[in-house]
């Protein structure tokens, strides 16, 4: 197994966010973490990214315990796209993408080619001399994607080698802020990486994107995996209502090969408290 998580418990500020969570994923899978806000998706991803050294339980990647893996080894094995980015200095797009190659400093001769390749894949090559600060939110996100792609690559071509058992890519809401075309392009890229053997774990909020691209879905609730499996197994009205508190229909459409999740709020209206009720509840 490429990724093994056993009895993972993470407490933040004395509150358990993840609670005895177990999961495994194989090499070359594209897995998606879903769940309502605050159910532990990002915490799980960050635990896998090595950000909580105080976790209880076991996390192993390619058979090696995370606790025994140095920062450098982790960075060579695993790239992470995190949610908020606070870059306030006017680095150019190319400089930002080149930062993805930091961990290989002095070991790869063709860093520059890989950076150019990554920029072309995310369609930011024409922006390469622009200051990162002048980009739009979606463009910034694509540049960050290019940076983590550059960190994963070993040769300047995704299809150039087999990454099975070597690389993990963690993406926390990777397509937030992107237009519909670039959302699709980014997830196609993730699929392509998975086909070359990279294990991709992504947090997504969009049911359609998840249904279209995920091979395995984990639905999180109260810091545990509530439901796990293929899209059709996990995306049932019962599961989704249990996790998100909203009634949905799961439909098939002749034009697409995956199930569509549509809210059924029209039939079971969500009762928001009126102003008077809200005041009274104080």
């Amino acid at each position: 197994m490429m990724l093994e998580v056993e009895k993972l418990t993470v407490e933040l500020g004395g509150r358990p966010i993840l609670h005895n969570l177990d999961l495994t994923a194989g090499t070359g899978e594209l897995c998606v973490l879903m769940g309502a806000n605050g159910e532990g998706k990002s915490t799980l991803l960050r635990a896998l990214a090595g950000e909580y050294p105080g976790y209880k339980g076991r996390i192993a990647m390619a058979g090696k315990d995370l606790r025994n893996t140095s920062i450098k080894e982790q960075a060579q094995q695993r790239a992470v796209l995190s949610q908020q980015l606070s870059l306030h200095l006017p680095f150019t797009v190319e400089e930002v993408v080149m930062m993805g190659r930091f961990v290989y400093t002095g070991t790869h001769a063709n860093d520059k080619e890989m950076v150019q390749y990554a920029m072309k894949q995310l369609q930011v090559f024409d922006l390469r001399d622009r200051s990162f600060l002048t980009l739009s939110g979606g463009q910034k996100q694509r540049v960050q994607m290019a940076r983590v792609l550059a960190q994963v690559l070993e040769v300047p071509d995704i299809n150039g080698m087999d990454y099975a058992g070597k690389k993990i890519l963690l993406l926390d809401e990777p397509v937030t802020g992107m237009d519909i075309l670039h959302q699709q392009l980014s997830l196609q890229l993730a699929t392509q990486l998975a086909q070359q053997g990279v294990l991709v774990v992504a947090v997504l909020h969009d049911f359609q994107l998840t249904a279209a691209y995920a091979q395995r879905v984990w639905l999180l609730k109260h810091g545990r995996v509530f439901s796990e499996g293929g899209v059709r197994q996990v995306f049932t009205p019962v599961n989704i209502e249990a996790c998100f508190g909203i009634a949905v229909h799961v439909l098939d459409h002749p034009g697409v090969s995956y199930p569509l999740v549509v809210t059924a709020a029209g039939q079971h209206p969500i009762h928001l408290p009126t102003a008077a009720q809200a005041i009274k509840s104080f």
């Binding site: 960050r46 990214a49 950000e51 606070s86 870059l87 930062m99 993805g100 961990v103």
Partner: peptide
Amino acid sequence: LGEREAMHSG
């Protein structure tokens, strides 16, 4: 890029 991002990058 940020402390966490730097750590992720090695």
